[in-house]
């Protein structure tokens, strides 16, 4: 018996169906609550500790002060400007990372002649943390956008590079055979078979590369910029404005979360989820 017909029968009996509807509605309300109650509790504790003024407000501002600071900085345009600057740098860095890591990752997976000499270089560069590139970047490009993009690039290429390589090498050989038996040219095999078959890995790599590029930009801006969210936070620290520091960090968290959530979830939904290829 289907659930629907079960409900109908209960409704015909009277009372109980109504009760179920109320339960369903409460469940619907409770769902976000189940995920968010701990976060709410943390904010409440934060609030209580902050207004008790155990710590001076510039060290631990109240949540309300942070929200107020967010509103003020949004009104004045200061926050939006810095978001725009940071996003612009990140997108440039991210685009360069993808433009490099995607084809190189494909070649690493595809061609032994390419992999053998290139792999050792990459393996030596990989352990260098993103921020360790900052001094060299400043030395070469000075303080400013070039060095930030340079740092984003060397921090964020790795996940996409190695995921793409893994995606290409782990393609089920049956797809290649099927393509061969259908008389597919090398180029068409590559574009219509190899790349889509590796897409679950490539998308996972893109997501990580995106996340890394966003996280590293703030660090890079703290060290080597006079604008952007990273600079904004560091500047607020210098002025002892704790609420601005935290407001900036919340902005970074929300933007990163929202973009990853919507852009990449969407990309996956219209490709590998639809095709039943999710990892």
């Amino acid at each position: 018996m289907s659930l629907a017909s079960f409900e109908t029968r209960r409704a015909a009996d009277g009372g109980p169906a109504k009760e179920t509807a109320v339960k369903l509605f409460l469940n619907f309300l409770a769902r976000p609550l189940r995920h968010l109650w701990l976060l709410a509790a943390v904010i409440i504790v934060w609030h209580v500790v902050a207004i008790s003024e155990i710590y001076p407000p510039f060290l631990l501002p109240a949540p309300s002060a942070v929200v107020q600071s967010l509103i003020e900085m949004t009104r004045s345009g200061y926050l939006i400007d810095n978001i725009g600057i940071s996003l612009g740098r990140q997108m440039t860095g991210f685009a360069l990372s993808v433009a490099f890591a995607l084809p190189v990752g494909v070649l690493l997976g595809y061609s032994r002649a390419f992999r053998e000499p290139v792999q050792p270089i990459l393996q030596l560069l990989y352990p260098i943390p993103g921020l360790a590139w900052v001094p060299l970047a400043i030395l070469w490009f000075g303080i400013g956008v070039e060095s930030i993009i340079f740092v984003i690039f060397f921090s964020s290429i790795w996940p996409l590079l190695f995921n793409t390589q893994a995606g290409i090498t782990s393609i089920n050989p049956i797809y290649r055979r099927a393509a061969m038996a259908l008389g597919t040219s090398q180029w068409r095999t590559f574009t219509r078979v190899i790349v889509p078959a590796a897409l679950p890995f490539i998308l996972a790599g893109l997501r990580l590369t995106y996340g890394t590029s966003w996280r590293v930009i703030v660090g890079a801006e703290i060290l080597s910029a006079r604008s952007g969210l990273g600079f904004m936070i560091d500047n607020a620290r210098g002025l002892l404005r704790g609420e601005e520091v935290i407001a900036g960090m919340i902005t970074i968290a929300l933007l990163g979360y929202l973009f990853e959530k919507f852009a990449f979830d969407f990309l996956e939904r219209v490709t590998i989820k639809k095709w039943g290829m999710s990892l």
């Binding site: 049956i174 797809y175 055979r177 099927a178 061969m180 038996a181 259908l182 008389g183 219509r192 078979v193 889509p196 078959a197 897409l199 490709t271 095709w275 039943g276 290829m277």
Partner: peptide, 20 residues
């Protein structure tokens, strides 16, 4: 000498392209 479209092949595991 090599695979070709004059010999159609059907695999046990179907081998359909999931992205098409």
């Amino acid at each position: 000498r090599k695979p070709g479209p004059e010999r159609g092949y059907v695999f046990q595991e179907y081998a359909l392209f999931p992205w098409m």
